[in-house]
Design a protein around this nucleic acid. Structure first.
Lengths: 339, 339
DNA sequence: TGTTAGCACTCGATACAGTGGAGTGCTAAT
DNA sequence: ATTAGCACTCCACTGTATCGAGTGCTAACA
């Protein structure tokens, strides 16, 4: 529906704006090598593009700025993806295949690298509990009536919490229960863990005594995952380097959103899997109405493990970020989770 | 060395400035109930106080602002500590004695509360490895040649890292080694762990085979603690609400310091134990030359476990923060670490 | 008919002078 | 020793003028 020339001009404007962060005028577009029309012609097209909703004018005598719709069109049709240099991509890829660490850590480090390369903020959402299975469970007594409960999942993720042991429980009973758990529940998805715990326990119940009550509650408590541990961010201060955020108040609203774990989880759960771009007001959250969020889900052996997201101003370098995130698109060959 | 009246006036000025964040003039001091002198008299005293280095003047016709030295005198001699309400203190105290969680978590939550109450940033430095002993060590195989190494200390702190198992190692050998470790090294301070590992292993060496080489290196790797895990912060964005930090560049330098773990560790290690106040340029780090850092070490059963710090502008409410941190001064009755 | 040169116009950014007021330092009176 | 009075300083604010980048429109042009 846009003419060739309109596309050319729209693309030129957005590319310029991404670089300069300042409204771009007809003159500067005309001086570019790739658009060989006079400023007047370009002005006409700009007026049309504005009428169509792709551009906006901060005030009458200023240049044009892309609108959310403009960016959207750009991302969908115009953008060149080869904006990331091959050496950058190689650096991340080699890092991902280095196999030095646990999957989650590798992803987090990779996100950190991207955040450094792009000067945007990166957010990693760890594996959903649906996609993790119990690998190992352990209770380490700490003296007194406290113990540390440790849950290791098949992705190598370790979660721990301190629990209080009811006084009427015997240590040997607990040890037996833990051994039983590891035997029977290893490999069970975290989400099903509790129901399986109760059903399995029910069968054995007859044999063991009735203090199982307290024991069960203890274990249930120990198995409840903390939701914040799924979120990992890096480069949050990069936001401060972006010229559009030199106003402290804007920064504050964004930061408070980032700090609010449940809101972030909601935000991410609204993103479908695969590579996804949410531009400005397309995000349901007002605090980031002037930001864009690009997410990519990463999978290992076909199993969707989590999501990595890049948050930056709407004027963000979409091509670059998308090609960088593309590294995660193909099935990663990281530490293979035990089946 | 300061006269009674000078102290009164200095105190009044600093208290006013802490509230208003704006240079305070002789008139406003004179109008306060507690200082019954005319503006002229106060002006004279102010000029003297400035000459002595306790006050500063942003420009000729402005009011006075406390200098680092002024704050120092205030903290050492003038400040009233009862600035925190008893109900606030009680809230924290009851929280600390709730015994619901592991010591470290309790401290972190308490720090969070203080940070919310004061609108400053709180930083918790976890137990030094000198003060932690091994409680339990475990290797959980993950499939492939990876395993998660888990170290539990007597403070209930859990640390984990993923390690690669050399192919030539037998699983049963590893299990035996882990059992051996838990028997022989439980209770050994983390700092001595490695040397003890080698000495103990040396004795047993004769009996076991010579693949100990790889095994030892594996365990050594697993026992090396991550230094970042000792730092915990909350309320970092509170900095943005302080009027002195409406300049983004200042905020940026502070944030980058906060993100730089080693620098933060250095900063904290420069603070002696007990309650400590570092005002403005007294901090060795330029980035926080306009900030004050108040730290308190917390001890449990006489054992120094870590440090809690509050970072705010030099114009911070010292009395309030110090009295809030005072809660940690007395020996805490938290989860008692196993002896 | 599509393109472009020309021109009047708009409007933010910048610079500058003027004003008001908060605050000071000094002096003289109490 | 204290304070009232006063001249002085200097920032913050306001209004005005200017500049220039950029626009929209019209008329000429290929």
């Amino acid at each position: 529906m846009l003419t060739e020339r309109q596309q050319l001009i729209l693309g030129a404007i957005i590319n310029d704006y991404i670089r300069s962060a300042e409204p771009v005028g007809s003159r500067s577009i005309s001086k570019r090598g790739d658009v060989s029309f006079s400023p007047a012609t370009i002005r006409n097209e700009m007026a049309d593009l504005e009428e169509l909703g792709f551009l906006e004018q901060p005030h009458t005598s200023a240049g044009r700025v892309p609108s959310t719709r403009g960016y959207r069109y750009f991302v969908d049709h115009l953008m060149k993806q080869e904006a990331a240099t091959e050496s950058e991509l190689q650096a991340i890829r080699s890092f991902l295949s280095s196999q030095m660490m646990e999957a989650e850590q590798v992803i987090q480090h990779a996100a950190m690298i991207i955040s450094n390369l792009t000067n945007y903020t990166s957010i990693v959402l760890g594996p959903d509990s649906v996609n993790q299975a119990l690998k190992h469970f352990q209770l380490v007594p700490l003296g007194g009536d406290k113990a540390v409960a440790i849950v290791v999942t098949n992705t190598g993720h370790v979660e721990n919490r301190t629990v209080t042991i009811p006084q009427d429980l015997d240590m040997s009973d607990i040890e037996q229960a833990v051994r039983f758990l590891n035997e029977k529940l290893s490999g069970v998805p975290l989400t099903r863990l509790k129901s399986r715990l109760f059903s399995e326990a029910g069968e054995e119940m007859g044999r063991y005594a009735d203090q199982c009550e307290g024991l069960l509650r203890l274990i249930e408590q120990a198995l409840t995952p903390e939701s914040d541990s799924r979120l990992f961010m890096s480069g949050t201060t990069n936001i401060l380097t972006q010229p559009e955020f030199k106003d402290v108040d804007k920064v504050k609203t964004i930061f408070s959103l980032l700090e609010e774990t449940p809101a972030m989880l909601r935000l991410f759960s609204a993103m479908p899997s695969g590579l996804q771009v949410r531009i400005g007001t397309e995000n349901d959250h007002e605090a980031i109405a002037s930001c864009s969020l690009i997410t990519a889900s990463y999978t290992i052996d076909g199993q969707q493990l989590g999501t990595i997201g890049i948050l930056g101003p709407t004027r963000m370098d979409y091509g670059r970020v998308i090609s960088l995130l593309g590294v995660f698109g193909s099935n990663l060959k990281l530490l293979r989770p035990g089946h």
